[in-house]
Computed example of a mutant assay.
Amino acid sequence: MNDMIDIRGAMLEVAHWPSDAPRGDAPPILMLHEGLGSLGLWRDFPQRVAEASGCDVYAYSRIGYGRSDPFRAPRTPAYLHEQAQVDLPAVVAALGLERPVLFGHSDGGSIALIAAGSTDLALAGVVVMAPHVRVEAVTLRGIEAAARQWACSDWPQRLARHHRDAPAVFAAWRDTWLAPDFRDWNIEHLLPAIACPVLAIQGEDDEYGTMAQIDRIAAAAPEARLLKLPGCGHVPHRDCPDQVLDAVAGFVATL
């Protein structure tokens, strides 16, 4: 069963996967889910990360997601910054994590990069899969296509298995990214301030972003390495799990 922690008056679900063969010098890993994700939607991947890396792995559902408390206010275009600069440091403190590796997917990857580039969190490293550092036309087209699929499929019922309020989760994601005042969202100016190593992973067939996203990370972050995966879409840990696990284990071993 998952635990609950109080973060600024909201109860968030969290879970911990200890490594079966821990390395004494291995940093903890904190996983940050994507824009429609939750703790539960990681499925068995956190345990596989723990086994491959020798690290203790933690994950949580952000407010409004999974079994965490519902959204408390309408989402604003600053929501990724709010999560990275306010809620994430509070989660790290509540879990007692020292120099963790932030491991984020999509929106979670953007949150990890913002935190690394604009907060005083002490981090051992950052791993991002399919992150966004700016808004691209392909991202908006992908979300528009997702909205059409949402309206004429069983997707709402399937997503409801993983969230208290799946329609609210989907609407927050769709409406924020498609809002005119979000078109200029960009975090590239934060990348040069990232003081820890970064591993950025992107699928060549990602329906929500191009390879330019991680190329921009490599160009701006002081210590970044890239993994580009052919035949892989927006969910590398589903499409190419073994390659992702090998890369993460190798990255963590160098920290």
Rank of each mutant, 00 (worst) to 15 (best):
Ala220Gly: 04
Asp184Cys: 08
Arg48Ile: 09
Arg238Leu: 14
Val126Thr: 05
Phe103Lys: 12
Ser68Cys: 04
Ile201Leu: 01
Leu32Asn: 06
Pro74Ile: 14
Pro236Ala: 10
Asp246His: 09
Tyr58His: 15
Gly24Cys: 14
Glu13Gly: 13
Gly108Pro: 08
Pro70Met: 01
Ala124Phe: 02
Asp175Arg: 00
Ala193Thr: 14
Ala193Gly: 03
Val198Asp: 00
Ala147Gly: 08
Val235Pro: 02
Ala78His: 15
Thr176Tyr: 10
Met129Leu: 15
Phe182Pro: 09
Arg99His: 04
His16Ala: 01
Trp150Ile: 04
Leu88Ile: 05
Leu95Ile: 02
Val133Ile: 09
Leu190Trp: 02
Leu190Gln: 03
Gly104Gln: 01
Thr210Glu: 07
His132Ala: 09
Val235His: 02
Arg158Cys: 10
Pro28Tyr: 01
Asp215Lys: 01
Ala130Met: 07
Val49Thr: 01
Ser19Glu: 07
Arg216Asp: 15
Ala78Met: 11
Trp42Gly: 15
Ala116Met: 03
Val126Trp: 03
Val248Asn: 07
Leu140Gln: 10
Phe45His: 03
Glu51Cys: 07
Asp184His: 12
Pro70Gln: 15
Val57Ser: 04
Arg75Thr: 15
Gly40Met: 08
Gly64Trp: 04
Met11Thr: 11
Gln149Glu: 13
Gly233Val: 08
Asp87Tyr: 14
Arg164Met: 11
Asp154Ile: 02
Met4Thr: 09
Leu30Met: 04
Gly96Leu: 04
Arg238Pro: 10
Phe182Ser: 09
Arg148Asn: 08
Ala21Lys: 11
Ile7Pro: 02
Leu123Ile: 11
Ser53Tyr: 06
Pro28Gln: 01
Arg67Gln: 11
Ala146Asn: 13
Ala219Val: 06
Val235Asp: 03
Leu88Tyr: 05
Arg23Ile: 09
His234Tyr: 02
Leu140Pro: 02
Gln85Pro: 03
Phe71Ile: 01
Val49Tyr: 04
Ala151Gln: 14
Trp177His: 15
Ala212Asp: 15
Gly108Cys: 15
Leu97Trp: 04
Gly104Asp: 04
Val101Glu: 03
Ser19Arg: 09
Asp175Phe: 02
Pro167Phe: 00
Val133Leu: 10
Ala172Asn: 01
Pro192Glu: 09
Ile63Trp: 13
Ala212Thr: 12
Ile187Pro: 03
Glu82Arg: 13
Leu32Lys: 02
Met4Leu: 13
Gly9Ser: 10
Ala26Pro: 02
Glu223Lys: 14
Trp150Lys: 11
Glu34Gly: 12
Ser153Asp: 05
Val244Glu: 15
Glu204Asn: 07
Thr176Ser: 09
Ala220Met: 13
Ala90Asp: 06
Val252Lys: 01
Ala147Cys: 14
Trp155Ala: 14
Cys152Leu: 05
Asp205His: 06
Phe45Pro: 00
Ala247Thr: 02
Trp42Lys: 08
Ala10Met: 15
Gly9Ala: 08
Arg225Tyr: 07
Gly125Val: 11
Ala166Thr: 07
